[in-house]
Design a protein around this nucleic acid. Sequence first.
DNA 1: CTGTTAGCGCCTTCAC
DNA 2: GTGAAGGCGCTAACAG
Lengths: 343, 343
Amino acid sequence: MATTLKDIAKKLGISEATVSLALNNNSLVNEKTKKRVHEAAKELKYFPNMVAKGLATNKSNTIGIIVPDINIVFYANILRAIDEVVNRAGYSLLAAMSNNDPQIEEEIIRTFISKRIEGVLAVPTNKPTKFLTSYQKALREYNIPLVYITSLYTIDEIRYVMGDIREGTYMLIKHLTDLGHRNIVFIGGNRTVPTTSLRREGYSRALGEKGIPVFAENLIECEDIHYDQAALVTEELIGRRRDFTAICAMNDEMALGVINTLQKAGIRVPEDVSVVGYDNTIFSKLSMVGITSMDSDIEGTCQQAVDMLLQVVRGEIPEEPHIMTKPAMIKRQSSGPVKETEN
Amino acid sequence: MATTLKDIAKKLGISEATVSLALNNNSLVNEKTKKRVHEAAKELKYFPNMVAKGLATNKSNTIGIIVPDINIVFYANILRAIDEVVNRAGYSLLAAMSNNDPQIEEEIIRTFISKRIEGVLAVPTNKPTKFLTSYQKALREYNIPLVYITSLYTIDEIRYVMGDIREGTYMLIKHLTDLGHRNIVFIGGNRTVPTTSLRREGYSRALGEKGIPVFAENLIECEDIHYDQAALVTEELIGRRRDFTAICAMNDEMALGVINTLQKAGIRVPEDVSVVGYDNTIFSKLSMVGITSMDSDIEGTCQQAVDMLLQVVRGEIPEEPHIMTKPAMIKRQSSGPVKETEN
DNA sequence: CTGTTAGCGCCTTCAC
DNA sequence: GTGAAGGCGCTAACAG
């Protein structure tokens, strides 16, 4: 059915090996025969069999990536960026979704290993641990490098590249305090998860610099970090009190929930209350007022993650196993000076 | 490095073949040795080499999918659904993005063939054609079945599964006319592309049934079908006239742009103007008012697409090469009775 | 420069 | 029930 090296070798009356070399543009083979081979290949509609090549070379030329759920915009953004970078680097990408389930994550790794992936990138499930999981051990066994994007792990030996959310949140809160805000609510997720706790650190630091105390009641914890939850806690919040002049949500989707809820209650943004989000995703453009947000530089982060991974794949040792990329503030209309009458 | 069949055969003092059979749970081999083999495999941390297996069996056990851009929520939804269905069917999924570029699409197909994919699913780029493209011919050459999801092609020989958007739009418009609306604006994309033209047919039919004429000025064409464009044309629209009482956008993201723009202008939804979207994506929940939308039953559609593909892979001939799946209306608050004073 | 030869790891007859 | 042998398509020495 499929035409093989042998077919084109036979047709040209030369050896398979020569054809192979010619197809790979090896300089050993004469330009003339190269051209003949390429022409014959095209004529016979030859498609190299990567499976056979993979077996022969013991290289799959593909790297794998695991994301929790592609229906979450942020992860989709990451996957897309990774796809681009990996392809540009001449590798194939094999993507899989873990559904935030460590067991599925492990299964995925198993099939990755079976496919002889050369390296794996992962946005890990959010169950942090201080121990090497079994799949991490398996990867090590097979000498397959692993780089996390947005890590939750605090184990030194585990490489990761992540956006500096602590710094990013600091910048956002500083932006608000510079505008005169002193009573700022932070809406995040579970306080024990790094993606929230790191942000809280940035929040506290920014307030501290202005001598503003951190009040526990301004730190809201959500069960999940999506629109509905944010809308819900905002509704509860404004039912309880209205002394705050700004709200910082841990991502844009939540910020959108906050804004819509405020507006529905007749609270104007940013005139009455300023709102900021994070990640500069599409959500930051979907309200009547553009949302001030932090751009995590997903492209840059992914580029660095792939670079680091490929370094290890090539057997080099990256100088720095942990990289924090710098985010940039995107100022839109949802944040403004504190309301005069509040003072 | 990696442990192979041979390693475990050697350890157990039996032949490779037996180990292979045992690992594949072949009934020929004695239960006892099977157990021994499985234990040894686990002990030696054996991971089957799918590359070798693929070469030997000439089956990759994976199917490929091409979507235009995973950053578009609707496509991300599709990819996720496909991933689930394909995995459940015991196949691996290899995903790739075309960026809506036919050339990239072709490259992807090339690598798919090289990887000896057993079938391909595709959400095609939106450049319709009546001819078989070169990659379609290549797939045929290699006997690799192809099924489109949401097809633009009108070639009989090309299989596809798509949501019935004509019917869905009909249902939405009928919903509006039943509520008393007669002056309904439809905001779509390029009129020559099936995803818009089919919807227009549904629109016209629903109006026709109530004896309402179709006015050209109520059919708005957008260059791209996203939020910003929708917001823009809505702004122009309300600058020009305000006689309409309802707006139907071709997707939820656009409907959201419409609603936000209307509200910013002080036009209430649904009191003054009703708005409906399509696809029942996350966007339909992101405004102050929930958006009435059509659920395209992505899961069902994807299930059928995979079923059809696997049928062909197995050499069966699906009875019906073209399937239209039925959508369901999701009624939310953005649509209501026509404003009394308009009459 | 080109051809020969041996595998890569696994599966699949076919004997025993 | 189990073993031996050949081959999947390609690459990688090594000869010539």
